[in-house]
Write a protein that binds this DNA or RNA. Structure first.
Ligand SMILES: [Mn+2]
Ligand SMILES: [Mn+2]
Ligand SMILES: [Zn+2]
Ligand SMILES: [Zn+2]
Lengths: 138, 138
DNA sequence: GCAATAAATGCACTTCTGTTGCACTAGTTA
DNA sequence: TAACTAGTGCAACAGAAGTGCATTTATTGC
């Protein structure tokens, strides 16, 4: 049994051929991916299968969904030590206005946000837009 | 000439009947509204007209668009003193997981966010999700 | 191993939101 | 008033997300 298969089983996801491929794809990518990205990477695969794979991965906390403001859902693998199960994954995300790529900045945690009295905060989404390091040429 | 007409002209938007109605609607609402909200409020009006009115308002900085993570664009009037033209409107938004409403927390500015070297931040979107004051019963 | 069962996949179709093209109408300007 | 510009109405389209159902594949109990 490969490393990936073990990982999937740890998350209680049956390691089918397609799931292994998608997991590998996500692991190799350093940026958040949309369903359409996976679709074009695996042209032969059914969109629905890919869609449902992502949903399963999300449910089982293998990936987290990212709303970067483009209107297209992106997904990225959760970190090894990530405890999505217990608390929210509170790192920020960066969306490059130039190359249109979105990355997890897992090292950059979201600061404590104060909300007015009466409001109860349960989750925070923080997206910074601008120019990524690849595009800024630095 | 009414107050609203004057306001619209200040923003260099011609105060047509529809625009005045929509402006009034936005002004009375205390929450961010989606195109569909306006659509149902003005059942007789054309969706495209409403759509383009919002786009015009957004361009002329009468409203700002809000991405609250629901995947549906919402809009809210900019504050009187808001200088969207110069800098970004950096207040945070709150989305209630119970009543599904989104509000501007204009008093709550977004703190300075640090990004890694090489990254250039141009804009920040911060959405807190949870229970709003109406729903929390406090 | 084999039948029964459960999970995963493939295909077709739908819904929802946002968007555009184009003709027509209303309003503005010379 | 004529020429022009801006706004509106209608129709159609695009992209993403989601669902129902039949079929295939995998798992489990015997
Ligand atoms: Mn992330
Ligand atoms: Mn706002
Ligand atoms: Zn970039
Ligand atoms: Zn609420």
């Amino acid at each position: 049994m490969t490393e990936i298969e073990k990982t999937l089983e740890n998350y209680q996801v049956r390691p089918t051929a397609m799931r292994i491929l998608i997991y590998k794809y996500l692991a190799e990518k350093e940026i958040a991916v949309a369903l359409t990205d996976i679709e074009s990477a695996f042209a032969k695969a059914e969109r629905t299968t890919l869609y449902r794979t992502l949903k399963t991965f999300e449910e089982k906390k293998i990936v987290h969904q990212i709303d970067d403001g483009t209107g297209i859902s992106k997904y990225a693998l959760c970190e090894k030590g990530c405890n999505c199960e217990i608390e929210q994954d509170l790192h920020l995300h960066f969306h490059c206005n130039n190359c249109n790529e979105t990355v997890c900045l897992t090292e950059h945690k979201i600061p404590q946000i104060k909300v007015p009295d009466g409001y109860i905060a349960e989750d925070v989404n923080l997206v910074v837009k601008g120019i990524c390091e690849k595009c800024s040429g630095q």
